[in-house]
């Protein structure tokens, strides 16, 4: 328990060690296979049954606590699985100064977890010292590109590694935007030289909410930067769609995922579930579905 270090035989971490931003090919991180978001509801099942999940993604902030159950389970599960870290509070698009206390905590957690990579969202989450605990949209314009890219560079320098930025679902379009979301996303990651966590469901949700063709989005991605894929469900209200992660992945998202794999090649993929948690087997079935799509596109080798 406590601060014990986790070093395992099937650890995939060493190849990542000590890499500096820009010191690696954009696509040099490992292909991890098919994973799941680690959620407290499944801690015991995972420890007892050690299911055939290739890797887990943890929600970074859930483990930014002093001690107790979260860190105990984190360490215990880490011994059996590779992990990546996924944050929601970096506020990379925010206009408050970067939260150095948060970054220090993040760096310490990276030391403990030794993740294959870390990610956060292309959005802002706070303003004026307030944390809004939501992934809020940015305007798509040159000012925002430069602003975010500068901050990503600072974060990558501080952490000594590239980060992944994820596209978020959105419900508004600013009149200040003068380009598409995918042009903006691409420009940010290229300017900042960071990697991408592409959320296929978020593309679908935003396409429905803003009336664009999700394939245009997928096709516009710089494929050598796409390091990870998220799949999830949402709540469909007909005229609009909300990114709730409380339903199974829908067919149009599976089809878009297949198109994405054809476009990018094999990409580490995982299912996110954050509410109305089903029995663990149902998530495993969804993971099998993702795996099957991978095999359809690439053959068994994937």
């Amino acid at each position: 328990m406590g601060n014990k270090r986790v070093v395992e035989k099937n650890d995939v971490v060493d190849s990542m060690h000590g890499q500096r931003p820009g010191n690696q090919d954009a696509n040099s991180l490992k292909f991890l296979g098919f994973g799941l978001g680690l959620r407290t509801e499944y801690y015991d099942i995972i420890l007892e049954q050690q299911p055939k999940v290739d890797w887990f993604e943890i929600l970074t902030e859930n483990y930014m606590v002093d001690g107790g159950k979260p860190l105990y389970y984190l360490d215990a599960i880490r011994q059996h699985y590779p992990m990546v870290m996924h944050g929601v509070s970096l506020s990379i698009g925010g206009t408050d100064p970067l939260d150095m206390q948060y970054l220090a905590h993040l760096k310490a957690l990276v030391q403990r977890v030794q993740p294959c990579w870390i990610s956060d969202h292309l959005c802002w989450t706070g303003q004026g010292g307030h944390n809004l605990h939501d992934l809020l949209p940015l305007p798509y314009n040159e000012e925002a590109i430069q602003h975010v890219a500068n901050r990503v560079t600072q974060v990558q320098d501080y952490l000594g590694r590239q980060i992944l930025l994820e596209n978020v679902s959105s419900y508004v379009t600013y009149s200040h935007s003068d380009m598409s979301e995918w042009e903006f996303y691409r420009a940010v990651v290229e300017e900042a030289d960071c990697l991408m966590l592409l959320d296929i469901n978020n593309i679908y949700v935003s396409a429905r909410n803003h009336h664009f063709d999700p394939l245009d989005y997928v096709n516009a991605m710089p494929k050598d930067r796409v390091q990870q894929i998220h799949l999830a469900g949402h709540s469909d209200h007909g005229e609009y769609v909300i990114d709730t992660h409380d339903h199974p992945v829908v067919d149009p998202v599976w089809r878009l995922y297949e198109q994405a794999l054809k476009c990018f090649g094999p990409v580490s993929t995982m299912i996110e579930r954050d509410d109305r948690f089903p029995p663990f087997e149902e998530l495993m079935q969804e993971l099998t579905q993702a795996r099957n799509i991978g095999e359809t596109v690439f053959g068994k080798a994937a």
Binding site: D134, L136, Y171, V172, T173, H211, E239, Y240, I242
Partner: peptide, 21 residues
């Protein structure tokens, strides 16, 4: 005033965020 309205008004769209918050 800075949010585009279409089939859904800007107020409705902002309301999605306010509710979620």
């Amino acid at each position: 005033e800075h949010i585009v309205s279409d089939q859904l008004s800007s107020e409705f769209r902002l309301g999605i965020y306010a509710n979620a918050y």
